[in-house]
């Protein structure tokens, strides 16, 4: 992946959401994108030109557009109509984004469009985030990776984020190997990135 000094950037056509450009590259801001925060903090899975990604909770497609700059194909799943309209516009300009309007917790709705992917990236504001991840493992190749952006506040605002994380981690370890866990401070509060790999 491309770094200019310590600024993460991605190659591709700019002007997706008013992002800055630097030497012709699009700046990928860790304060806006949780995935960029994870990379900036030294974690994450290297995005390479041959990998295929399933992106759950693509929203307006800002982070998805950066991911698409690096990888072969992005399957971008989003459920809400308003952000979907923006995502469709992003997908129109990037030929490797497949926009799917569906509920990430109901993979049977979009399974007929899915091939096996190397990376599942999940960023959804739902209380049952771990369960959603589990249901989507059917699309992940053995040895492939899952990056789960755990929004502890979406799971339960009343509980201590660390406790929520411990429970999520235990849930994921039923079927995955947890490789790395990082809090996204100072970029995002009460968010943790959990990087897992699927047993081969």
């Amino acid at each position: 992946m491309k770094w200019l000094g310590n600024v993460l950037v991605s190659p591709g056509e700019g002007g997706v959401y008013g992002e800055r450009t630097l030497e012709g590259y699009r700046v990928w801001d860790p304060y806006r994108s949780k995935l960029a925060a994870l990379y900036t903090l030294g974690g994450g899975i290297e995005l390479t030109p041959e990998i295929r990604v399933l992106y759950l909770g693509a929203a307006n497609g800002t982070t998805a557009s950066h991911v698409a700059d690096y990888v072969e194909t992005v399957y971008a799943v989003e459920f809400a109509p308003r952000p979907m309209q923006d995502l469709l516009e992003v997908a129109r300009r990037r030929r490797n984004i497949v926009p799917i309007m569906a509920d990430a917790s109901r993979p049977e709705e979009y399974a007929p469009f899915m091939e096996a992917v190397d990376l599942v990236y999940q960023d959804v504001a739902q209380p049952n985030q771990v369960e959603i991840a589990e249901r989507n493992l059917a699309f992940l190749k053995p040895g492939g990776h899952l990056i789960l952006m755990l929004k502890t506040r979406s799971v339960d605002v009343r509980r201590d984020p660390a406790e929520v994380l411990a429970e999520a981690r235990a849930g994921l370890e039923r079927r995955l190997d947890v490789a790395d866990v990082r809090w996204l401070d100072p970029y995002h509060q009460d968010h943790t990135a959990i990087v897992c790999s699927r047993r081969g």
């Binding site: 109509p81 469709l88 129109r92 030929r95 926009p99 309007m101 469009f113």
Partner: peptide, 24 residues
């Protein structure tokens, strides 16, 4: 492969447009 992704994209986009219209 390019044709595959292109066709899949247009199918998914058509579907998404329909769903958006329906939800509004």
């Amino acid at each position: 492969r390019e044709e595959y992704v292109d066709l899949l994209r247009s199918v998914c986009t058509t579907l998404a447009r329909k769903k958006i219209a329906l939800s509004y």
